[in-house]
């Protein structure tokens, strides 16, 4: 049903073409004469849902043609996440993650003596006095490995179904588009909603989450370097790369996820297929807030419980990556890569 509607709409867009200055979706559509399901899946994942075309559309409801490109593509995109979800059906990964987090905490607590959890620990190795490093590593490797396997299978299928091909030459162009979110820039006009000035912030908030996440990842890499190369044990001093990177990344993620949730709350239901699904934002928010709290209170008696909560959130997040909203990242990156490839033809 969304496919039929998307086909009707993109056929109309290809006759009109007024929106081709906004983003790659319309230019990619113009390279096609007819739209297969795979074409529409590709276009839907290429759409960053900036909504400029919705507000510029001379055929938007109440016009009888009732054209709503971002809303319709959002439904197709949602369908594609379900179609390429492997091996489990896509469902609210947020709930699953919460379940993991909630279960993990009492399991760990039952294995660890209470007085260990609730007494202050300080100095190098303090975290590992609560949860052994080997247990942390095992959980991280298992959850991340599982998610990468699932995502990889879905992504390879998606790439093959939408046309396959060797995209290596187009990686630099695609990388630039991804890192700058060029397609969320509305062709230079910015991504904004005439009735809701807040939407102009979407790109900023998304960047905050994206680069905040990257900083947290960099913090983990730096910590690994400290551990294995410099031989130091976590927690590291306040003025050290792992703490500074993680702190900055955590703050950016808190601001970004809160901002995106605020925009989502005010968004038009016809434009957002997952309007009421705050699970991914909520999870990222929980990961970053618990991480920051752990950093701030790491010398107090609350450190033990904060560590458990943070680890629960992190492992819940990592284990459910492939079955939640996170998949929009890799799938959109693949679509942006294909668009970069097509531009070269």
């Amino acid at each position: 049903m969304p496919m039929t509607e998307a086909r009707r709409i993109m056929t109309l867009c290809n006759v009109c073409t007024y929106c081709n200055g906004y983003c790659e979706v319309f230019r990619a559509a113009e390279r096609r004469r007819d739209f297969s399901d795979a074409d529409l899946t590709y276009l839907a994942n290429l759409c960053h849902n900036c909504r400029n075309c919705r507000h510029a559309c001379q055929y938007a409801p109440p016009h009888v043609f009732a054209v709503n490109v971002p809303g319709t593509l959002a439904l197709v995109r949602d369908q594609s996440y379900r179609d390429y979800s492997w091996p489990l059906p896509r469902r609210s990964a947020g709930r699953a993650a919460a379940a993991i987090a909630v279960l993990l905490i009492p399991i760990l607590m039952s294995a660890i003596p209470w007085e260990t959890v609730f007494s202050p620990h300080a100095g190098p190795g303090a975290f590992y006095e609560i949860v052994p490093r080997s247990a942390m590593m095992l959980a991280a490797v298992l959850s991340l490995g599982w998610s990468f396997l699932c995502l990889g299978v879905g992504l390879i299928r998606f790439w093959r179904d939408t046309g396959g091909g060797d995209a290596s030459a187009s990686v630099p162009g695609a990388l630039r588009d991804i890192l700058t979110l060029r397609n969320l820039d509305g062709g230079g006009a910015g991504c904004h909603d005439p009735d809701q000035p807040a939407l102009r912030w979407r790109r900023c908030f998304h960047h905050a989450v994206f680069y905040g996440f990257a900083l947290c990842f960099a913090s983990t890499v730096a910590a690994t370097f400290y551990h294995y190369v410099l031989g130091g044990l976590a927690p590291y001093p306040a003025i050290s790369p792992p703490v500074l990177l993680g702190g900055a990344g955590g703050v950016a993620m808190v601001v970004g996820t809160a901002g995106l949730a605020w925009i989502k709350k005010n968004s038009d239901s016809v434009l957002d297929a997952e309007r009421n699904d705050y699970s991914f934002l909520g999870l990222l928010f929980a990961v970053s807030v618990s991480g920051l709290a752990l950093m701030i209170f790491r010398e107090s008696a609350a450190m033990g419980i904060l560590l458990l909560v943070h680890l629960g959130c992190v492992f819940g997040f990592l284990a459910t990556l492939a079955h939640g909203k996170f998949v929009h990242g890799p799938f959109r990156a693949a679509a942006v890569l294909r668009a970069a490839m097509e531009r070269k033809l």
């Binding site: 007024y18 400029n52 507000h55 510029a56 001379q58 062709g187 006009a189």
Partner: peptide, 15 residues
């Protein structure tokens, strides 16, 4: 050319 066409132009001028 108006970016997004006449309706986008009109929207910005109304604002």
């Amino acid at each position: 050319f108006f970016l997004g066409g006449g309706k986008a132009l009109v929207n910005s001028l109304y604002a």
